[in-house]
Nucleic acid binder design. Structure first.
Length: 937
RNA sequence: GCUCGAGUGGUGGAAUUGGUAGACACGUUGGACUUAAAAUCCAAUGAGCAGUAAUGUUCGUGCGGGUUCAAGUCCCGCCUCGAGUACCA
């Protein structure tokens, strides 16, 4: 009976499905463990071998924890709203729901064949109305909340309304839009309802405002900052411009500090935490107010170097700054207007790529230094960004390189305010090692002391204060797309109204076309059925909108990150129709114990989901503030592309060794045509694409060799390796173990099919331990002490490795174990039974099969994991390496029970030691018990 | 530019608090079995030098220093690669 992995894997996959082996209970006496994978977007291309890497690792942990006696929640679902299905719909007219359904079925089939222990009874899809009903509900909660800075948490908007009606907004510290109008309680109560709503909108956590957004004309939608890479859209690489639009936004900036603090409490990879810290971008400094001469205006700047205030010799405003048009003098206006015009035309991308050139223009206006009362010229320059801080800087050329370059370029004076600093060539930017000079009452002080003193004196005269500035912007929440969650919002007299939770979900309407309407409204505007009847509380036809009780619904949809920002809570109670999850379930499962996914979500999903969780925590909807205790970023599995070299301008391909000095163009060819020695099957290639059919091939040593390059797996590079093929040839257990064996889980690594046979033959060797002469046969006799040692050594190592997520070394340990047991001709039940269990997290199918052969009726998935016994591992003696002056010379077997002094004596008594010493007496003998003896002489 | 991470055989990668560097696997070479091949099993495999051989010996973890009886591991200075970020005041 040979190892028939196909039969075994089919049998057990259907067994698990039929018996619901991995369904988790929402209450149990066992301790809980929640292992989560970042759910996939079901793309049309299906899975390649890189995708399952994280799922395999999490599955190993899930199965291991079940053996260890935990009640394990290991769910899976689909992030099924998204752009590709929508674009397919635009091209073909096929509803995205159908595309999505097809893709999900394909994904499910591929996931099943890998033998994952997911609890599919809890599957969720973000595009299901039973799911997005609760995404809409959470949106309403965000709309009905404000952020109270005095309590440092979000609160219901009704508490704010009460405060307004009792005391106005003078003493309220809240995170809100810039400069809300001030009003008293009396004034508030006199406001019309519309006016009140307008004001409240400036405080809500989900709010509607005219915002400068990143508009991508090509995609016909706005994009969040994290969806833009190098000034172009992440998807498609289309240009992005700044544009003012009425948009929903999320006041994530309210949580900037708590999101930063929270990082300290969670066990996430340090690089990823660092990325979130940078993205939040906290900087501590001061805001300073400068009065403008001859105008009734002030310029507020933010600086991280208040200590350098006496070094200010000019100011720079962003070209977009609102004061620019106000304060520019007549003489300068032509020049300034031209400059503003010119910079506004430059795209974001130009501005970024062209960092080096210094441009700017003088406004003709002057500001007054708050302390020296000197006049300082106000310039504008595009090195100052409108979006950061106040859009204006106080320029200290001696202490900031950009200010220095600007000053040098325009011949603006530079004042040196640092003791012993040479600023003849560049600015002195080392704040930790600076001593202030030439600065009145700050002379001789350090950065820290001077900053404190300046802030104190600015506060005294009302010209500034200590401030903390964050780079994190509020997140735009509207998308002009079809395939996303509709907002539960309609408009009455231009003001947004929430639809009561009793009437959720608001379903996506049917539309004729998935493109924006002719009037430029989002695709939902194509629906004829899309208005809200306030009296009957339902969605009705658009035509009736001017009817008194029917109002227009919001036509935007939510962004991709809406549904993924809370899904981990939904798995806890996936079918609840009354709440997003019951409090019992939420309090039982609490948080994700282990979360696996790629680091590309660092500043997107992983930040937004933390924000929503913090908010839900404030509203007492969830029991924990941070939803994922530990996170692991699995590295990407890269493809090894194959390149054939075509002589430039010809139809001749050269084998790799013949390229040398020829001018060649590399052409990607399908990796499946190439064997492990880089030899290309030319006949197959010719049949593949017409461009190769007539081409000629120059061989070397009778074969055609290709070049290799490691890059991302992608269809267009023909380097995709399909897990289906590997499963067909070697089985899922081999694929699982091989992917783990390939290297550390966090590391990016190229796929290389060459080594897979080693793992496969390991599984065959394992099978053979149980099969003598082709039939199942094990011994009931007592195993040898040697075999017991091998087993317990392996248990110890593998247990530690899994706990440390070091799966590649566990696989090695298994290989050593099976090799040793084969050599010992071990086939005793008392060794093989625990070994089966040990291997089950990695290769579950073969483990289950062997377990069955051992005579067990039930699945082994909850069998207690074997525990190693120390006494099998303790050795009575050890080969000590004996070294002289650190250099190893020989080894000597010594009992471990000896004391260091006894070891020393034994070693010195040895002939070989004496031979090495050659009559000299050693200076010192260093004994590390159990490890090494070093003789220094 | 800044921040973070990583450099170990022909290849992927091991190496605990500093303690025999190269586990395990691939590949390569030789051998066994076979009419032959596949499959399987066994052995060798960092480089150099000496030796018929057992063996001995030198050099070896990106480069240059340092600490230490002992450094892949710790410290200082560089180089290269990767990731993130980019005029953030």
């Amino acid at each position: 009976m040979s190892y028939d992995f196909k039969k075994i894997e089919n049998y057990w996959q259907s067994y698990w499905a039929k018996n619901q082996t991995f369904a988790a209970e929402n209450s149990s006496k066992l301790p809980k463990y929640y292992v989560l994978d970042m759910f996939p977007y079901p793309s049309g291309a299906g899975l390649h071998v890189g995708h399952p890497l994280g799922y395999i690792a999490s599955d190993i942990v899930a199965r291991y924890k079940r053996h260890k006696g935990f009640n394990v929640l290991h769910p899976q679902g689909y992030d099924s709203f998204g752009l590709p299905a929508e674009q397919y719909a635009i091209q073909t007219g096929q509803h995205p729901a159908i595309t999505t359904e097809t893709n999900i079925n394909r994904y499910r089939q591929q996931l099943d064949q890998l033998g994952f222990s997911f609890d599919w009874s809890r599957e969720i899809r973000t595009s299901d109305s039973t799911y997005y009903k609760w995404t809409q509900w959470i949106f309403i909660q965000l709309f009905n909340a404000w952020y109270d800075l005095s309590l440092n948490k979000a609160r219901s908007i009704t508490t704010l309304i009460t405060l307004f009606s009792e005391q106005g907004n003078k003493n309220i510290t809240a995170v809100c839009d810039e400069n809300p109008p001030e009003f008293s309680a009396q004034e508030w109560n006199d406001f019309s309802e519309i006016e009140q709503q307008k004001i409240l909108l400036q405080y809500r956590l989900a709010y509607l405002s005219d915002t400068e957004v990143n508009w991508c004309a090509e995609l016909g939608t706005v994009l969040a900052n994290d969806e833009i890479i190098n000034g172009v859209s992440e998807r498609g690489g289309h240009p992005v411009i700044r544009k003012k639009m009425k948009q929903w936004s999320m006041r994530i900036s309210a949580y900037a500090d708590r999101l930063l603090q929270g990082l300290e409490k969670i066990d996430w990879p340090e690089p990823l935490k660092e990325m979130q810290r940078n993205w939040i971008g906290k900087s501590v400094g001061a805001s300073v107010v400068f009065n403008v001469t001859d105008y009734d205006a002030t310029v507020e700047v933010f600086t991280t170097r208040p200590d350098t205030l006496f070094g200010v010799t000019f100011m720079t405003l962003a070209p977009e700054h609102e004061l620019v048009s106000k304060i520019t003098t007549q003489e300068q206006s032509a020049e300034v207007n031209a400059y503003v015009e010119q910079t506004s035309k430059r795209s974001e991308r130009d501005r970024m790529t062209d960092v080096k050139s210094i441009t700017g223009v003088f406004t003709g206006a002057y500001a007054i230094h708050p302390l020296t009362k000197q006049q300082i010229p106000i310039w504008i320059g595009d090195y100052v960004l409108a979006g950061y801080g106040t859009g204006a800087v106080m320029a200290v050329p001696c202490g900031d390189q950009r200010d220095y370059d600007f000053a040098t370029h325009f011949n603006i004076p530079i004042v040196n305010i640092f003791k012993d600093a040479d600023i003849s060539k560049e600015a002195f930017t080392d704040k930790e090692n600076s001593v202030i000079a030439n600065s009145d009452f700050l002379n001789g002080l350090s950065y820290k002391e001077a900053s404190q003193k300046v802030i104190a004196s600015l506060e005294k005269i009302g010209a500034g204060k200590g401030t903390i500035n964050y780079r994190l912007r509020d997140a735009v929440f509207s998308r002009q797309r079809y395939w996303g969650e509709p907002f539960p919002v309609y408009y009455k007299e231009g003001m947004p109204q929430m639809i009561d939770r009793a009437h959720l979900p608001i379903l996506l309407p049917k539309v004729e076309k998935y493109l924006p309407t002719q009037e430029g409204a989002p695709p939902l505007g194509n629906s004829s059925q899309w208005g809200w009847d306030e009296q009957n509380n339902n969605v009705v036809s658009n035509d009736k909108i001017d009817h008194q009780t029917v109002f227009p619904l919001e036509l935007n949809t939510m962004p991709g990150w809406a549904g993924s920002s809370w899904y981990f809570n939904r798995y806890m109670d996936a079918h609840n129709t009354e709440e997003f999850a019951s409090q019992e379930a939420l309090h039982y499962w609490k948080e994700v114990d282990l979360y696996l996914g790629g680091s590309e979500h660092a500043t997107g999903h992983l930040l937004y989901s933390r924000f929503w969780q913090h908010f839900l925590y404030d509203m007492e909807q969830v029991p924990v503030e941070e939803y994922a205790k530990k996170l692991i970023n699995q590295g990407m599995i890269l493809g090894t592309s194959a390149l054939a070299y075509r002589k430039r301008g010809t139809q001749t391909f050269l084998s790799k060794g013949l390229v040398q000095d020829h001018e060649v163009d590399p052409v990607h060819v399908d990796v499946s045509f190439v064997n492990s020695s880089d030899e290309l099957d030319v006949e197959q290639l010719k049949k593949w694409q017409s461009q190769f059919a007539e081409a000629s091939f120059e061989l070397e040593e009778g074969v055609f060799r290709v070049g290799r390059e490691v890059e991302k797996m992608s269809k267009s590079k023909y380097n995709v390796v399909n897990p289906d093929d590997i499963c067909e040839q070697y089985g899922a257990d081999t694929l699982r173990m091989y992917e783990m064996f390939l290297g550390p889980i966090e590391q990016a690594k190229p796929w290389n099919t060459a080594g897979i046979s080693g793992v496969h033959s390991f599984l065959r060797k394992l099978w053979k331990l149980f099969h003598l002469n082709e039939s199942f046969e094990i011994s009931e006799e007592k195993p040898s002490r040697e075999s017991l040692k091998t087993l317990h050594k392996t248990i110890k190592k593998v247990t530690e490795d899994i706990e440390n997520f070091s799966f590649n070394t566990s696989v090695s340990s298994f290989m050593i174990c099976v090799n040793e047991l084969s050599a010992q001709q071990c086939n005793q039940r008392s060794i093989l039974e625990p070994l089966t269990c040990l291997i089950s997290p990695f290769a579950p199918h073969i483990a289950e099969e062997l377990w069955k052969l051992l005579g067990h009726q039930e699945s082994l998935s909850k069998t207690p994991y074997p525990v190693y016994e120390e006494h099998y591992l303790i050795e009575s003696s050890k080969e000590y390496p004996i070294s002289f002056n650190g250099k190893m010379r020989f080894t000597k077997k010594l009992p471990l029970s000896l004391s260091p002094k006894e070891i020393e004596n034994e070693v010195l008594a040895d002939d070989r030691t004496q031979q090495q010493l050659d009559g000299r007496t050693p200076k010192k003998v260093i004994v590390v018990p159990g490890k090494i003896v070093n003789i220094v002489g």
